[in-house]
């Protein structure tokens, strides 16, 4: 596997005056509530270790208070940790001087905020150009750079409006364009779509996935919404009370939740959109060419899509092929349906 773009190692964050001393206590096993009761320090993050792969979307999911926003702010050091390392492209962010950190934020990493955080006194184009302005680019460069991204996020014609004149969805497009305009490799998105209406949120998720196909950035996406996490995340880490409880792909988390907490989440998930054909197929495929009434699906296709194609073509068998077109397994309508249904059996037995 390639070197991860961002490596977080043994990261601790404790809020309070004597946070560094408290790290030792936490390492010795003092719990969050004991720390608050006995030392009046708040445990933000405990021993976080994540490898975030290059050019893919890493989702960090957790409910409010789980420390996810604190974690993302360590990646560009808007928050100082109490202990640990954050290594981005081989460089330790926490060792950077003030000047180096500024250059790092200008060129390498950019951010989209939950409540947009646009500059209310600047027009859309000046907001998008802000990162370029801070870099010291010329007026002309700022303008062309900003216009390109305004058009790309579908806001052409609004460049001279003020943020207050735009709807929430449009404001977040400005936020996204502002972050993309600096050409940073890493994009941090702190609950970027949480403040939007459900329809607009889905719309913005599609915008992001489209952009990602083309740009292949390293994106760190924070959310409290599991559906959003499963839809966007190439890799997902689930955070609870400042600790990581599970890391893996969407499918791994849905099929094999690490504990009761996570399984209570994934119970509500639309499994058909997460589980892929090869996960439930019968192997090995029968020798010889696939049966005539069997349709062909590619490895990686989600079950919902397989079911849709089977229904459309009125077949009840499918064979899964790998990248070079060789059959690697078979599916029936019955097995697809079983895979999509939420297993209640386990709960019933317990």
């Amino acid at each position: 596997m390639a070197e991860p773009a961002i490596k977080v190692r043994n990261l601790y964050k404790i809020f309070g005056r004597r946070d560094r001393e408290m790290v030792e206590k936490v390492k010795e096993g003092v719990s969050k509530s004991e720390l608050l009761a006995d030392h009046s320090h708040v445990l933000g993050l405990r021993d976080i270790n994540i490898d975030m792969p290059e050019a893919s979307i890493q989702v960090v999911m957790g409910l409010s208070g789980s420390g996810k926003s604190t974690l993302i702010r360590h990646l560009n050091r808007l928050i100082e940790p109490s202990a640990g390392e954050v290594i981005v492209h081989g460089e330790d962010v926490l060792q950077m001087s003030e000047k180096a950190l500024r250059e790092f934020r200008r060129h390498k990493i950019s951010m989209v905020f939950q409540r947009f955080a646009l500059l209310p006194h600047k027009t859309v184009i000046d907001n998008v150009a802000y990162g370029l302005h801070v870099m010291g680019k010329s007026k002309a460069e700022q303008k062309t750079g900003a216009m390109r991204w305004i058009e790309r996020v579908g806001l052409a014609g609004y460049e001279d409006n003020y943020p207050a004149q735009l709807s929430g969805g449009m404001q977040q497009r400005v936020g996204l364009a502002r972050a993309l305009a600096t050409d940073a490799d890493i994009l941090l998105m702190d609950e970027a779509f949480s403040a939007l209406d459900p329809l607009i949120r889905t719309d913005m998720q599609s915008v992001l996935l489209d952009l990602q196909k083309e740009l292949a950035k390293t994106i760190v996406f924070i959310t409290h919404d599991l559906d959003e996490a499963l839809r966007l995340g190439d890799k997902i880490a689930i955070l609870r009370d400042g600790e990581i409880v599970q890391q893996g792909t969407a499918q791994e988390i849905v099929l094999d939740p690490a504990d009761e907490y996570i399984s209570s989440f994934v119970r509500e998930v639309n499994r058909g959109r997460v589980i892929q054909a090869e996960t439930i197929m019968d192997t090995p495929p029968p020798p010889g060419p696939p049966a005539e009434n069997s349709i062909r699906v590619e490895k990686g296709t989600v079950l919902e899509e397989v079911a849709r194609r089977m229904t459309e073509q009125d077949r009840d068998q499918a064979h899964v092929v790998n990248g070079s077109g060789e059959p690697i397994g078979t599916l029936t309508m019955r097995s697809v349906m079983a895979g999509m249904a939420t297993p209640v059996l386990k709960d019933a037995i317990e």
Binding site: L78, R105, V134
Partner: peptide, 21 residues
Amino acid sequence: DKEVLEAANAFGSSGWQKLVE
């Protein structure tokens, strides 16, 4: 607004840029 200031920080604004912009 602290969030707007945080955004200015996240884009690497210097102290003077934060003040003026």
